[in-house]
């Protein structure tokens, strides 16, 4: 396990280095064009890399503030949204995945899931918004990121309700996308494990079916989900970008969209690096978890 962990840590570190390099390439776009073509560009990338090493991530071309500061301001909101979405994804995706992996439901599951998942995230977000306005009569103009903790601390019912309203739709949007990823990983893992010969072998040798599944199948399936943690993180971030846009959530993803439009490459580079680093970290943790749970080696 130690050797495996070290190997994975090495891969994670290499991934981070690559992400830094990619961020430097993107940040190099911010430099004024100069003569020298490729060699000038490489020089700019290297100088950006040098600045990154000194934790100098440049400044925003729009606000002139430090890019790191800009991103640091917006990233927590995105992470809050992704965390809330991940919670929803786990609450919906895991039971859904389990139900759809068992018995006859598993046969109908795949086409059913395809139909439900065919709508892109932005369509689902708009549909949720429409339902909240038409059915629940929520105010469509009420947008932004709630300060849930302050609302809870204040103890005011109306403030708490508004905070939850603000959180509910974006979190549901992100959570639905994440749930699709979670249940897919779960069903894939369950499919791979369902016909494993050990299930019958151990049962015939004397363990109860419940024991076999609890001790060996469930860890294997959960390990399968963990092995796909990076992929799940990707779908959460992707959905977060859409949810932030649709629901006016002031997060880093929407900052990225605006920065690309305004060619503010220093900020774009840093947001990209942050997202890549989080996904790579999720992959790293997921692979360790999968190995620890069931000895499964993800993407060997």
């Amino acid at each position: 396990m130690w050797r495996f962990g070290l190997r994975r840590a090495g891969r994670f570190a290499l991934g981070l280095l690559g992400a830094i390099l990619m961020a430097a390439v993107v940040a190099a776009q911010a430099a004024p064009p100069g003569k020298g073509g490729v060699s000038h560009f490489i020089g700019t990338v290297l100088s950006r890399l040098g600045e990154f090493v000194r934790f100098d991530f440049g400044s925003s071309a729009i606000t002139a503030a430090s890019a790191a500061q800009e991103v640091a301001q917006r990233l927590p909101a995105t992470l809050e949204l992704v965390a809330a979405g991940a919670l929803v994804a786990a609450l919906i995706g895991i039971p859904l995945g389990i139900v759809l992996s068992i018995g006859r439901a598993s046969r109908a599951a795949a086409p059913l899931i395809q139909i439900v998942a065919a709508a892109p995230v932005f369509c689902a977000a708009l549909a949720l918004l429409w339902l909240s306005v038409q059915v629940l009569h929520w105010d469509a103009q009420l947008q932004g990121a709630p300060d849930l903790w302050s609302a809870l601390a204040s103890g005011h019912g109306a403030a708490i309700r508004d905070a939850f309203r603000l959180l509910a739709l974006p979190a549901l949007t992100v959570g639905a996308a994440g749930a699709a990823g979670v249940q897919l990983a779960l069903r894939r893992a369950a499919n791979e494990s369902r016909d494993a010969p050990y299930r019958r072998g151990l049962r015939m040798m004397g363990l109860t079916p419940f024991e076999v599944d609890r001790l060996y199948l469930v860890p294997q399936v959960l390990a399968g989900v963990l092995a796909n943690l990076g992929e799940i993180a990707l779908s959460l971030f992707s959905a977060a970008a859409v949810a932030e846009w649709v629901f006016g959530w002031p997060g880093a993803a929407v900052l990225f969209l605006k920065s690309v439009a305004l060619h503010d490459w220093s900020v774009v580079a840093l947001v990209l690096f942050a997202f890549a680093a989080i996904t790579l970290f999720a992959e790293f943790v997921g692979s360790l978890g999968a190995r620890a749970l069931a000895g499964i080696e993800a993407n060997p």
Binding site: A196, Y198, R200, G201, L202, M205, Y216, Q220
Partner: peptide
């Protein structure tokens, strides 16, 4: 017949 879980 692989009666045991191969990873445990």
């Amino acid at each position: 017949e692989q009666p045991l879980n191969r990873h445990v």
